[in-house]
């Protein structure tokens, strides 16, 4: 199983039947492909609709795109609305889970994913609203950068997307829960040891007494 599949499969286990879910572009979007058969979720798209169909399903429509601008389709029972309504849903606590990628996360639950000063400034889009309003915020990302540098830090160095907003960090190596006392290591990926997690993580963390292997197959 490659890193992205491990992350997407583990993220999918966070969804309960009937949840309203907003998935960021990239790895988070893949999670919709691994929903348990008895779980059905309603995907929200920040540009103004509920009932986003998973990619590769129904035929894509004209004038209907996801948050990444890709043509998509809408499920039976879907609903379309303007951007103020869309962000009322997001900011108002009507989204059960949002899953976002990140450049950095830290042990206080801060997240930075919208700019690298002087290099890359795409803008925050809807990310700041999503992390301030969703009931549960999950960061789903590869544990380190392509060069192997840690992304889970003591303190974010990049401009923040949100302060103290992250609830869970799911990577190809492990799952951290963000608690008021700091990071708690609750799961490791199949075949990954706690020492490997420690080697690749700058942030301080506590190992949960019940730490186990991710229940993915």
């Amino acid at each position: 199983m490659n890193a992205k599949t491990i992350i997407a499969k583990r993220v999918a286990l966070e969804f309960e039947d009937g949840y309203v879910v907003n998935l960021g572009i990239g790895i988070p979007t893949l999670a919709a492909d691994f929903l348990p058969t008895d779980v059905s979720v309603i995907l929200q798209s920040e540009n103004g609709f509920l009932g986003l169909a998973p990619l590769g399903g129904l035929v894509a429509e004209v004038d209907l795109v996801n948050a990444g601008g890709k043509s998509v389709s809408i499920m039976p029972g879907g609903a379309v609305f303007d951007s103020a309504m869309s962000f009322a849903i997001i900011r108002g606590g009507h989204v059960d889970v949002t899953v976002l990628g990140s450049l950095e996360v830290d042990q206080e639950g801060n997240l930075a994913n919208w700019m690298v000063p002087g290099k890359l400034v795409p803008g925050m889009g809807g990310a700041m609203d999503l992390v301030s309003g969703a009931k549960k915020v999950i960061v789903a990302m590869e544990h380190t950068t392509k060069d192997g540098n840690p992304k889970i830090l003591k303190k974010c160095t990049l401009p923040l997307t949100g302060k103290g907003v992250v609830n869970f960090i799911i990577t190809n190596l492990c799952v951290f829960e963000v608690t008021p006392a700091g990071l708690l290591l609750i799961e490791t990926a199949p075949g990954v040891t706690v020492d490997e997690v420690r080697t690749n993580t700058v942030a301080e963390f506590v190992i949960a007494p019940h730490v186990c292997t991710m229940p993915i197959i």
């Binding site: 951007s83 869309s86 962000f87 803008g123 925050m124 889009g125 990310a127 700041m128 609203d129 309003g133």
Partner: peptide
Amino acid sequence: LIPQGTLA
């Protein structure tokens, strides 16, 4: 740059 929901 303004957060999308704030801009709306």
